[in-house]
Amino acid sequence: ASVAVIAAGTQGNIFATSALRSMRFLQILRMVRMDRRGGTWKLLGSVVYAHSKELITAWYIGFLVLIFASFLVYLAEKDANSDFSSYADSLWWGTITLTTIGYGDKTPHTWLGRVLAAGFALLGISFFALPAGILGSGFALKVQEQHRQKHFEKRRMPAANLIQAAWRLYSTDMSRAYLTATWYYYDSILPSFRELALLFEHVQRARNGGLRPLEVRRAPVPDGAPSRYPPVATCHRPGSTSFCPGESSRMGIKDRIRMGSSQRRTGPSKQHLAPPTMPTSPSSEQVGEATSPTKVQKSWSFNDRTRFRASLRLKPRTSAEDAPSEEVAEEKSYQCELTVDDIMPAVKTVIRSIRILKFLVAKRKFKETLRPYDVKDVIEQYSAGHLDMLGRIKSLQTRVDQIVGRGPGDRKAREKGDKGPSDAEVVDEISMMGRVVKVEKQVQSIEHKLDLLLGFYSRCLRSGTSASLGAVQVPLFDPDITSDYHSPVDHEDISVSAQTLSISRSVSTNMD
């Protein structure tokens, strides 16, 4: 405001104040949320940038038409019409005319000016109207692209899951042992070998009828009888010197917790746990005396209480009078009846079946994303299906024409109403129809010849004498029936064969 007042002088105070007050009108834009329509302006900018070359070309040609039209109309009207006294007036008329506004304040009066105005109007309006069409088509394409992008975003994750499931299904095939990355992934998420051994031990116990592997080994086996189970490696608790092959000598807290839970599941009659010990102070733990958990001091820290809870689970003690015997301790020893080589084939089979199920689920979810969402998608899918159906029908028609023997030239002739090819031409065609016709002709010829021969033979049998045999009239074959199959017997006289037959029969009768 200060700059405006200084620039306008003393009389500019009122002007500056009114100008600043008129800017209050811009507050109405906040009512229509114009300040939060950044996406709309961004869309407009992207459309203009995408079609910038077309817009520049249309505007450039339109500007050239405007300059030439205004100049030529000015030359034609400057002497006869006072409205075109300057080139600026003519340029104003050209702008209003070519933009199809047409105020009518300035019009050419001479015939030359009117002809020039009409010609440049028809030429220039087309170029001035091009930017509107370019922007409209650009907006339509952009909206369609955003629509497809939205659908693509919805299909991206199911497609990625389907590709991942397909690759993992491919890589978990037993015949592709060189693909090891997927197996490394499952090695990292699978439970430890100790848990798998416990699982298979329970399965084997159920197969043995509820007997433990130790009891199965204690059962008497006759001499020479084959053992029911192959000899396997035996594993004891981590306190002993022997372990399962492939295990580490260090046992983690999870393994100890699972070991304690498995020992508690063996039965309360074979294992008696004394009350857990509780320390009397955060600094020292008295293991010899058993106290109640309700006497825990409230001033303990979080670490002390955590250690106390761990001691409740991981440090059970047995009383002296209830101490288990050596046999019970041997039964409680952890027996590992299986090795990694025995378990891994079954584990890989389970993983393979899981990968198949996940692949089928991913495939079903991806197919669900291909379903249409709204009416536009339904129409688009219907149009695509219609085009596909037309293509299939056209391909089927082409194959039928190839089989029947109607080529493209014959199809055009039928469409024009011309006469089709004759039967002889159809026979000569190298097509399925021509071959079928040729075979039918040959079969008819053979059938006719057989009928003639059978009739001749029956007449010979009825006559009974050589004289009557020679008097029999043998009809000749019709050459038209034989089609294109020409037998060497067709052109010979059958009477010669009949005479030869009669001579042979007379000779045979004389010999008798």
Rank of each mutant, 00 (worst) to 15 (best):
V443G: 07
S395C: 08
L387V: 06
S192T: 08
G407W: 12
L314H: 12
Y485F: 12
R307C: 09
F193C: 14
S175I: 03
R237P: 11
M344L: 02
A219P: 12
R364S: 07
Q335L: 08
G385A: 15
K348E: 06
Q397L: 03
Q397H: 06
P226T: 01
S192Y: 04
M344V: 14
I257S: 15
A290D: 01
S227F: 07
Y334D: 07
S192A: 09
K332N: 07
K295R: 14
T277P: 04
H486D: 15
G455R: 13
S281Y: 13
L452V: 05
Y184D: 11
V361M: 00
A467V: 02
T349P: 03
I379F: 04
R265Q: 01
A177T: 07
K270M: 10
V439E: 01
R411K: 01
R212G: 13
Y178N: 01
A197S: 09
A498P: 13
L312Q: 07
A166T: 11
E429G: 05
G210R: 11
V507D: 09
T277A: 07
K332R: 08
R237L: 07
K365R: 08
S283C: 06
K363R: 05
E215K: 02
E201D: 05
A320V: 10
G246R: 13
H448P: 04
E247A: 12
Q444H: 15
G407V: 12
F308S: 15
V216E: 10
E215V: 02
T172S: 11
R371L: 02
I430F: 07
M174L: 14
I343T: 08
L312P: 14
P238A: 11
D512H: 15
R309W: 08
N303S: 06
L469V: 07
S495A: 10
N303H: 15
T306I: 04
K315N: 14
M251V: 08
D493N: 13
T509I: 13
P421L: 15
S445Y: 05
L357H: 00
S227A: 14
V437L: 01
K363I: 01
S299C: 07
S487N: 10
V347E: 07
G409E: 10
Y457D: 02
M174R: 06
D418E: 10
T277R: 13
V472L: 02
A467D: 11
E331V: 02
S188R: 10
T280S: 13
G391V: 14
A323G: 02
P293R: 05
D223G: 12
V287G: 04
G407A: 06
E289Q: 12
D478V: 13
R505P: 08
Q442P: 03
S508C: 14
V221E: 08
L338P: 09
A166G: 06
P222L: 05
Q442K: 04
I446N: 00
Y457C: 14
S311T: 10
N303D: 13
E337G: 08
I503N: 10
S325L: 12
P408L: 08
S262P: 11
V328L: 08
I446M: 01
L273Q: 02
G417S: 01
A498G: 15
Y334H: 05
R406Q: 07
L214V: 08
D428N: 05
H236D: 05
Y334S: 03
I257T: 13
P213H: 13
T294A: 09
C460R: 06
Q204L: 08
S319C: 11
D401G: 14
R305H: 10
E429V: 10
L314R: 13
M432I: 12
L312R: 06
E331D: 09
G434E: 04
L199V: 10
P282L: 07
A346D: 03
P316S: 09
A290G: 10
K363N: 05
L211V: 04
D401E: 13
S463A: 08
E215G: 01
I354F: 08
P475L: 06
N208H: 02
D428V: 08
A206V: 04
E492K: 15
D255G: 11
F200C: 00
I379L: 07
S468C: 13
P230R: 08
G210S: 04
Q204K: 08
A181T: 11
S240G: 07
W300L: 14
V221A: 02
G252C: 03
A274G: 08
S192P: 01
G267S: 04
Q286K: 03
L273M: 14
S240I: 11
V350L: 01
G470C: 13
I503V: 02
E327K: 15
S269P: 14
P488A: 15
T172P: 03
V427A: 03
D493V: 04
N303Y: 09
T349I: 11
S506W: 09
E330D: 01
H236Q: 10
S242P: 11
D423A: 13
V437D: 02
T182P: 13
L314P: 10
L198H: 01
S483C: 12
V378A: 15
Y178C: 11
G209V: 13
I403F: 09
T277S: 12
M259K: 15
S269F: 00
I343S: 07
G385D: 06
E447K: 02
R265W: 02
L338F: 05
S227P: 12
D388H: 01
R307L: 14
L196M: 10
Q499H: 12
Q473P: 05
S283G: 10
S353A: 04
R228C: 10
H491Q: 03
R228P: 14
L214Q: 03
R505C: 12
N510S: 15
Y178H: 06
T339M: 02
A274V: 04
D255Y: 08
S431G: 07
M344K: 08
K270Q: 06
Y457N: 06
R505H: 01
Q499L: 06
E289K: 13
Q335R: 02
K394R: 03
D490G: 10
T266M: 07
A323D: 07
D187H: 03
V443M: 09
A424E: 12
V350F: 03
F200L: 14
A467G: 08
F477I: 11
K416T: 05
S175N: 04
K438Q: 05
A181D: 11
I354V: 13
V232A: 00
P408A: 03
A362V: 01
E331Q: 12
A329T: 15
R307P: 10
D478N: 15
A471V: 09
E492Q: 06
K332T: 12
D388G: 15
M433R: 05
F302I: 14
K254E: 01
L190H: 01
R305S: 12
P475T: 14
S445C: 12
D304H: 08
T369K: 15
Q204P: 01
F359L: 03
H491D: 07
K270R: 05
S487I: 14
D322Y: 13
S227T: 09
P191Q: 11
I189V: 08
R237Q: 03
L214P: 10
M278R: 07
T339S: 04
D423Y: 13
P324T: 11
L501R: 15
C460Y: 14
C460G: 12
C244R: 15
E380V: 03
R218W: 06
V474E: 14
F302Y: 13
R264G: 02
E285V: 01
R207H: 14
